[in-house]
């Protein structure tokens, strides 16, 4: 069974390429049982979305 370390690899990888059916299913199964990894998945997604807007909403102190 997949553990958190491998799950985090897939959570990252899905931002680079589509996961295979097998990978998607294993990840989904793991996430359904692991709260910490669900947080990690949200955070990777948040990082991805935040970066796309980098420099737009982002004020830097002079």
């Amino acid at each position: 069974m997949m553990m958190c370390k491998e799950a985090s690899r897939l959570m990252s990888l899905k931002h680079e390429r589509s996961l295979t059916f097998q990978e998607r299913m294993s990840l989904r199964f793991h996430l359904s049982m692991c709260g910490a990894c669900r947080q990690c998945d949200r955070q990777f997604r948040l990082l991805h979305e935040a970066c796309r807007g980098y420099g737009i909403d982002h004020e830097v102190d002079p």
Binding site: Q39, R42, Q43
Partner: peptide, 16 residues
Amino acid sequence: NGRWEAHSRPASWGDP
């Protein structure tokens, strides 16, 4: 065993 270490276990950041 592949599980998160206690010090690096992700916690909620609140509303994205």
